[in-house]
């Protein structure tokens, strides 16, 4: 135990020293002005809120089944494609110019519905037959499903990158402009929409889990499946509903991703999926407010760290994974703590 502690202390000090050293260098050189920091923080906040919405899906499923739904990122990707096709049709027919608000709402609904269906089918086909199997079995099945969906999307939609045709009122990279230290910092409309909608989804989910019958059933199943079944809870249905909800969230995240970042392709769900899982662990898996916090913290961290460490921004993803590893070493239960039934000794 003491060796482990020493080791962790050592790694921690090294990381801290490295951080301090690089950050000092950046500050001394004055490499980035206040407006850059503000811009990075804002973009981190926006992307972080998308991670948070995806992370909620991981956390919900993990809290109930103790299983990493590896294919969750792919569910999000398919939602993004569904939204893309709807918007494409609206743009072609001129509908999104006439009724931008309605167009956006329908796009979101389409993405969320399709993702929900994918989530339900996924559970039904790849996970349900494996209930009660050893831990590794559903995890491998989930990995298989993830690979399958990714390649199916590549076959179905081709491997080219597609650009979301936002309604004219919601053009990308257009927005309000703030002034920070005399320099302009823009807050895009898509960013505001993403952030606001994320918050709505998070609050909605929290209320759903805390206040409704379904939420109560979900918490009961998470606590103890056998006991819940004895109490008359239909465990299969609750699990299916959980996958449906996490699919809806993933679909919303997919459309937000498309609207805000613009480009989608078959691989678009994979890395955000990994990061969202990181976010869920960071916040404490099984913990809904934790997933939100974790997502936003991770988003801001990955946006700021390359600048703080004075590293190329292409290493952003590496830093996000490094965060995951560090969290798991130092605080495996996450910032807000896990919400899981007690571990068997």
């Amino acid at each position: 135990m003491s060796l482990g502690l020493l080791l962790r202390l050592g790694i921690g000090l090294l990381v801290l020293a490295f951080f301090a050293y690089r950050f000092y260098g950046v500050l001394v050189r004055g490499a980035y002005g206040a407006e850059t920091w503000a811009r990075l923080a804002i973009s981190g906040l926006i992307i972080g809120s998308v991670y948070a919405v995806i992370a909620l899906g991981y956390t919900l499923v993990y809290g109930i089944l103790f299983m990493i739904n590896f294919a969750h990122g792919e569910v999000m990707m398919i939602g993004a494609f569904a939204g893309y096709f709807v918007l494409e049709a609206f743009a072609a027919s001129g509908f999104s110019a006439r009724q931008p608000v309605l167009a956006i709402i329908i796009t979101f609904l389409a993405g969320m519905t399709v993702s929900m269906l994918v989530g339900i089918s996924l559970e039904r086909i790849a996970y349900r037959p494996l209930r009660g199997a050893p831990r590794l079995v559903p995890l491998i099945s989930a990995i298989g499903a993830s690979i399958f969906l990714q390649n199916a999307a590549q076959l179905m939609f081709g491997s080219m990158r597609r650009t979301y045709s936002n309604p004219p009122a919601l053009e990308r990279n257009v927005g309000w402009v703030l002034e920070v230290a005399g320099k302009p910092v823009s807050i895009t409309y898509t960013g505001v929409l993403t952030f606001a909608f994320s918050v709505v989804l998070m609050v909605g989910l929290y209320l759903l889990v805390q206040r409704t019958r379904l939420g109560r059933a979900m918490r009961a199943v998470a606590e103890n499946k056998e006991a819940a079944a004895l109490m008359g809870v239909d465990v299969d249905r609750v699990i299916a509903n959980t996958f449906a909800i996490s699919g809806v969230l993933a679909g919303a995240a997919g459309v937000m991703w498309g609207l805000h970042n613009g480009i989608i392709y078959h691989y678009v769900g994979f890395i955000p999926g990994l990061k969202a899982f990181t976010a869920a662990v960071l916040g404490g898996i099984g913990n809904i407010p934790g997933a939100m916090l974790g997502g936003i913290v991770l988003g801001i961290a990955e946006s700021l760290t390359p600048a703080v460490l004075d590293m190329p921004f292409q290493l952003k993803d590496v830093l996000a994974f490094a965060v995951l590893v560090l969290v798991l070493i130092f605080r495996p239960t996450g910032i807000l703590g896990e919400v899981l039934a007690e571990e068997k000794v």
Binding site: A133, P138, I140, I143, G144, A145, I147, Q150, L155
Partner: peptide, 18 residues
């Protein structure tokens, strides 16, 4: 379809013959 088949195989094997 190779990779697609790999993915499907992982799922199918886990269900049918782990």
């Amino acid at each position: 379809y190779r990779v697609l088949v790999f993915g499907a195989l992982l799922v199918v094997m886990m269900i049918v013959r782990p």
